[in-house]
Amino acid sequence: MMLSADRMERLRAQLGTARRHIDTARSRVGRVATAAGAAAATTGLFTPDLLGESLLATAAATGTGLLFLPTHRAARYTEVKEHHQFHNGSSTITRREPSHQARTTALLYTAPGASLTGLLLAEQLVPGIHWGEVLAVSLWSAGIWWLRPARTARHMLVPPPPTKQTSDLAVTDQPHSHPVARWWAENAATEEGAAPGTVLQDIEQTGEQAMRAVIHSITPGEPVPDISLKRLSALMDVPVELINIGPAPGRGASVQLLTVGKADEQEPDAATVWAERIAPLAMPEATLTAINFGSMTRKEVDA
């Protein structure tokens, strides 16, 4: 069964949301593991009773993480370019060398667990509480919490999921600051609305009961979906013949121009008035080339 472009985009958005949720869950589990390790190291300063449990938990957490670390995605080779200069010119040779990405990420991933194991064992070798042990526990806790080597290792193999996609045209400090834009987002741009996946911008009132605005697709590179004028008419309670959606001059299909109502007639400019009303009667075939606005004054002449 073929899926429409709109449904495919929604499916991609749902998968992206799921990836972000999984990544957030992994991040929180890592934070909990770091806090547990810091608590175990602090406890080891005072009593050795929980040493065995702490070492076992550290080994289990590290081993489980390594088991699910996708090292198969690591690059096996890296390209190295060598530039050679000769008396009659130069040449560039590209050769492939084995990549150590898988080994590097594995070492990086095991760094927190291995260093915590060493810290726990060192605490038992020093009698009492030494200031060096306190400093080591503090450095381990702060360093792992800030550097997050396990998370860095995973992101070396699997890039973090992208943030929620929004069109750069639709991103503003206050994307729905205009009341009409807020109404559009809450009523027309919903998944079941008349214009899903869109945002309304550049809203301009062109008459007492008329407006003009620009519809943007929130997905970069995707066109504005087909919008039913009948559904929009029912939603806005405006006659269908007063609603028009068409291409925006000079823009692609991701942007559409929306007009509602009949715009007020504007007063013609001076050149139009001259060409249509004055010249045909007073000065046929005369063309107005320039207009200067100002005030005329009469100089007083001394007698």
Results as ranks from 00 to 15, higher is better:
273 V>W: 11
66 L>K: 01
208 E>M: 10
216 H>Q: 12
160 P>A: 15
195 A>E: 03
170 A>F: 01
76 R>S: 09
298 R>I: 13
303 A>H: 11
53 E>I: 07
45 L>M: 05
85 Q>L: 12
235 L>F: 02
20 R>C: 00
128 G>F: 01
132 G>C: 05
210 A>S: 13
211 M>A: 14
107 L>T: 06
50 L>M: 11
148 R>S: 06
295 S>E: 14
4 S>L: 10
263 A>Y: 01
143 G>S: 13
33 A>Y: 01
294 G>H: 06
218 I>N: 07
301 V>S: 08
175 P>F: 02
14 Q>S: 09
144 I>D: 07
236 M>E: 03
3 L>K: 11
131 W>Q: 07
95 R>N: 07
1 M>R: 14
162 P>S: 10
107 L>S: 09
204 E>G: 04
258 L>F: 10
117 T>A: 14
216 H>A: 05
280 P>Y: 02
121 L>M: 10
56 L>H: 11
179 P>N: 02
177 S>F: 01
273 V>D: 05
287 T>S: 10
66 L>I: 04
295 S>N: 14
146 W>I: 14
62 T>G: 06
72 H>Y: 08
31 R>F: 06
279 A>N: 03
105 T>M: 15
64 T>H: 14
242 L>G: 05
254 S>F: 04
255 V>Q: 06
83 H>A: 08
219 T>R: 10
166 T>D: 08
225 P>N: 09
164 K>N: 00
60 A>D: 10
130 H>V: 03
118 G>Q: 06
158 V>A: 06
267 E>L: 15
263 A>Q: 13
37 G>E: 07
226 D>I: 10
203 I>E: 01
20 R>H: 00
253 A>S: 13
214 V>F: 05
167 S>T: 09
223 P>R: 04
87 H>I: 09
92 T>V: 15
22 I>F: 04
300 E>M: 13
174 Q>G: 05
257 L>K: 10
118 G>T: 02
278 I>W: 11
49 D>F: 05
231 R>G: 03
287 T>Q: 14
253 A>M: 08
85 Q>A: 11
27 S>H: 12
36 A>R: 13
87 H>N: 10
184 W>E: 00
140 W>K: 00
184 W>S: 06
114 A>T: 12
7 R>M: 12
69 L>T: 09
127 P>I: 07
200 L>T: 04
155 H>D: 10
300 E>Y: 10
239 P>D: 02
134 V>I: 15
302 D>Y: 09
127 P>G: 08
47 T>A: 13
267 E>V: 14
134 V>G: 08
92 T>W: 11
285 E>G: 07
42 T>P: 04
65 G>H: 02
197 G>K: 02
274 W>P: 00
4 S>N: 05
159 P>D: 12
105 T>W: 00
129 I>D: 01
60 A>P: 00
260 V>Q: 01
244 N>I: 03
37 G>K: 04
164 K>H: 05
214 V>Y: 06
147 L>I: 12
29 V>N: 08
113 G>E: 02
162 P>Q: 11
13 A>R: 12
97 E>A: 07
201 Q>H: 15
296 M>W: 09
152 T>A: 14
68 F>K: 07
18 A>F: 03
11 L>F: 04
248 A>H: 15
103 R>H: 10
228 S>T: 04
182 R>P: 00
104 T>C: 03
30 G>E: 14
132 G>M: 10
276 E>T: 15
176 H>R: 08
266 Q>N: 07
28 R>G: 03
185 A>S: 13
32 V>E: 13
250 G>W: 03
133 E>G: 15
50 L>V: 02
